[in-house]
Design a protein around this nucleic acid. Structure first.
Lengths: 134, 134
DNA sequence: TGTACTGTAATATTTTTTATTACAGATAAT
DNA sequence: ATTATCTGTAATAAAAAATATTACAGTACA
């Protein structure tokens, strides 16, 4: 789980709750981060077909699917780093028999964990998550 | 899952595989990071009673329990940050009804996920993990 | 034709992580 | 007992990653 997930989920929650075109500045104001960062994450969410945008005046962003159809797993999937965090940057000593093999075994372990996280996140959809808010 | 876990697991694997007092320099050499970082993580592992140390010449570190008794969950537990990653540093706008509540709901979600990760990690012990190495 | 948006690049700043230096204290070997 | 080799830990530096800022082209509504 990385730092982008809370931002992506926050964005998706806003888009779900306020069922209209929201500009990036509005979203950035709620999350309290820079609008450019939000537009970048929105670009990514568009790429994953979770969001659509409308350019120009009175434009903004909205959900591309009914929130009931969007699982938290799909949101996580969109922000998940391609190489699993914490493994890729390690460069253990290849001369050491343990160091030489550890990343392979770590990757297997991480994939198993990732799988169980996805299963968990797949059980909740965006509408259900949003219903928790007063 | 943070960046300390791979290091902690690598340390524990080395201590398991080489059943003798290992100095921090040796461990650092296998992981390819600075020895002081290793000693810091070892301090933490000692605090969690997974490892013991012997000071002075020919000293070093060794496991404090038989590897069969040490689950990967116990290792993860030792390096898990107290405040859940990615939530604590977010400071959403309290004037926004969504922003005001999001961290609470994120925390609940993260705790659920964390719980399922722990369940998964609880199923493998250090000996089993080490047996995967040739 | 102006205004308010998106999209994106380039750069700067801040934060986090990791490395380095330094040294006191412990203990085994000589 | 003296020396060498460790741990333990603090203080600082450097590197890397995350985030913010600035800038501006393109789009579409009014």
């Amino acid at each position: 789980m990385n730092g982008r997930f809370p931002i992506a989920l926050h964005i998706m929650t806003l888009l779900c709750k306020e069922d209209r075109l929201l500009p990036s500045d509005y979203i950035a104001g709620s999350i309290n981060v820079n609008p450019v960062l939000i537009r970048k994450e929105l670009s990514n969410l568009i790429k994953h077909q979770l969001v659509t945008s409308q350019e120009g005046k009175n434009g903004g962003y909205k959900l591309n699917q009914p929130p009931k159809k969007i699982t938290l797993a799909a949101i996580y999937e969109a922000v998940r780093p391609e190489t699993i965090l914490g493994v890729a940057k390690n460069q253990p000593n290849p001369a050491c028999p343990i160091g030489k093999q550890i990343n392979q075994h770590l990757n297997e372990l991480y994939q198993e964990i990732d799988h169980s996280v996805m299963q968990k996140l797949d059980k909740t959809n965006l509408l259900e998550f949003c219903d928790k808010f007063n």
